[in-house]
């Protein structure tokens, strides 16, 4: 569990949305993907989503999957329509200069666990 305010500090994030008090949002899991199909299949409620995909469907997917916050990696900035939708859906949008790999490493090192716990991993079979 990590307050979103601490996550912002760890990843040196810029915050693009303006409504939510970051210290009151507690992130329970981490997930990272540019594939929204995978986010829908393998994320859990209360997770932060790290992604390089910056469009309105990223926000829509996060809303449907009960993702608590989105972090755009590699300094990618969302357009105004993406920020507007996130404000409407009350999903904080942040941006980090770190790459996906570095961002995951930092958060994992600080104890933020994956959305794919071992039991969940076991359910997912690699296609033959």
């Amino acid at each position: 569990m990590m307050p979103l305010s601490e996550l912002r500090n760890q990843l040196h994030c810029e915050v693009y949305t303006g409504n939510e008090p970051l210290e009151e949002i507690h992130i329970q899991f981490g997930c990272a993907s540019d594939l929204m199909s995978d986010v829908l299949a393998f994320s859990r409620a209360g997770a932060v989503l790290l992604t390089g995909l910056v469009n309105t469907q990223t926000v829509q997917t996060a809303f449907i999957a009960e993702i608590s916050a989105i972090v755009f990696v590699r300094g990618k900035r969302p357009a105004a329509d993406v920020v507007a939708l996130a404000n409407e859906r009350r999903i904080p949008l942040l941006g980090t200069p770190y790459s996906m790999y570095e961002s995951c490493g930092i958060l994992y090192g600080k104890g933020l666990v994956s959305t794919m716990e071992p039991a969940v991993r076991g359910e997912h079979r690699v296609p033959k």
């Binding site: 540019d34 594939l35 929204m36 199909s37 995978d38 986010v39 829908l40 299949a41 995909l53 469009n55 469907q57 990223t58 997917t61 079979r125 296609p127």
Partner: peptide, 28 residues
């Protein structure tokens, strides 16, 4: 229904979809 099977176009993939997970995920 098989995970990973997809007939998606590049436009669909650019939106983050079309990875062949949809129907299997609906069933799940």
């Amino acid at each position: 229904m098989q995970e990973g099977y997809s007939t998606a176009t590049p436009e669909m993939r650019e939106m983050g979809f079309g990875a062949g997970m949809g129907l299997a995920n609906i069933k799940k």
